[in-house]
Nucleic acid binder design. Structure first.
Lengths: 179, 179
DNA sequence: ACCTATAGGTCTGGTGAATGAACCTTCGTC
DNA sequence: GACGAAGGTTCATTCACCAGACCTATAGGT
């Protein structure tokens, strides 16, 4: 976040986390990465973020160890941005914050629902599966789908948004990124 | 967060949540509220935030329904800022993000530890009590204390930081706010 | 050889927000 | 009546964000 001159005096892990993912757009980029977005132009189209800002945020997230660059073709060299182990561990906070936003800041409720893939049960508010018990399920076992109660939504028309209208496994590359 | 011209096109509860608590300082203010900070000058001293920004953030959080103003004296009228129901529900995302920061962004590990008051057990990484089982414990049942492994810390010298050095119930007003 | 498209950027000028410091107001106390 | 505390407001400066133009490398079509 670079709160002024860093945060060296804030004895708090939260401030440290916010330095990494607290800047404008950063957490939305991470969210898109969970949704399967990998390519520069796909982030660009889906978020509507200025190119220079996207460049800066992706580089910062790579430097912080949240994302890594993975080549998907040579000549010309192109790479996608994938979540690292540390990035994958952001699923919990990200999901909970999203649920909070759905309850308290989104008139009409959430736009997407999330289910546990092995059993098909919707996740509870901490990201655990009520049917399977135990703790929160990892993002690799989560599928997202549009909330049927929100069919009135004014959808974006970029390719990424269209790909996300269909039920979809988290972390599975979206259609426009498939070779 | 006011990402440019709002976020009307982001079909995402996360973006909505970030409009409320995603601006610089907002989540740190909410964190301090969980720590028991209530007064304008205490937030100011503990965070080192510019006064004008603190004014703007507190007003925005009140308008968003995360905080509410509660008079604590008349003549002259003075009020503290307390968490609302919606604000209290931010404990989950806030705790998890903090834990993530402690694991991945804080060299030396976290500065504070959090325990379940009735049984004294430290919370796990989702904020649940391993001893009592069940889901995450509410913040009213959580006590914070400094991490003994971080005695080398360069502590801040404001009254709030000094009050937080002692073990402390969440939401309990800090010493400087006591009448 | 030339034109066009795609992917992933960089560069630039304008604008709005964050910053630190000074100032203000109301009240109580000495 | 001077002083201090609490909770702000005002101001000039700096900085980050923004939209949009521009750049580079390659591939495909004609």
């Amino acid at each position: 976040m670079a709160l002024g001159i860093d945060y060296e005096l804030q004895d708090c892990a939260l401030a440290r986390a916010l330095e990494v993912v607290g800047e404008r757009w950063s957490l939305l980029i991470v969210r898109d990465a969970f949704y399967g977005v990998q390519r520069f132009n796909d982030f660009l189209a889906h978020l509507g973020i200025p190119r220079a800002v996207l460049t800066a945020r992706l580089n910062a997230l790579v430097a912080a160890g949240v994302l890594r660059k993975e080549p998907y073709q040579q000549a010309p060299l192109r790479h996608g941005y994938l979540l690292t182990g540390a990035g994958l561990e952001l699923w919990g906070p990200l999901y909970q914050l999203s649920r909070w936003g759905g309850r308290h800041a989104t008139p009409g409720g959430p736009h997407h629902l999330f289910a546990h893939v092995p059993c098909g049960t919707d996740l509870d508010f901490v990201g655990a599966c009520p049917a399977c018990g135990g703790g929160p399920v990892p993002p690799t076992e989560v599928a997202m789908r549009p909330n049927p109660a929100r069919t009135d939504d004014h959808h974006r028309e970029d390719p990424v948004s269209r790909a996300l209208v269909r039920p979809h496994l988290l972390l599975e590359p979206i259609a426009s990124a498939a070779v």
